[in-house]
């Protein structure tokens, strides 16, 4: 430990990179296009699954003339939305870690 003379700091020093409004030169800038690309691919996969279920189930149901099946499918699809939402949340948070 150096025994340099202590001085009173009267004003808070400016934060690094304040002028740019973003990370300064000493902070490691993340690879933004890569992050955006990964996020977008993940998001589009989820949206594709939603579109498939949303448009596919009503079409498939047309071949099942059972009232119970229609009611059960229309309620069960909410479970699928919850699963997709949880999956999307986990993947998005893992990508950003």
């Amino acid at each position: 430990m150096s025994a340099g003379r202590r001085v009173v700091v009267r004003r808070r020093p400016p934060a690094l990179g304040r002028s740019s409004g973003l990370s300064g030169p000493r902070e490691r800038l993340p690879d933004v296009p890569a992050i955006v690309g990964l996020q977008l691919r993940r998001a589009l996969r989820t949206v594709a699954a939603v579109a498939g279920l949303l448009l596919g189930l009503p079409v498939l149901a047309a071949w099942v003339p059972e009232p119970w099946a229609w009611v059960a499918l229309s309620v069960a699809v909410h479970g699928a939305w919850v699963c997709l939402a949880v999956l999307q949340l986990r993947c998005a948070e893992r990508l950003e870690r």
């Binding site: 993940r42 998001a43 589009l44 989820t46 949206v47 939603v50 279920l53 949303l54 189930l57 009503p58 229309s74 699809v77 909410h78 939305w81 997709l84 939402a85 999307q88 949340l89």
Partner: peptide, 15 residues
Amino acid sequence: WYPAGAAAGFVVVLA
């Protein structure tokens, strides 16, 4: 199917 469509909107919003 109407309620299913309305709820699906939130997965799209999330993604």
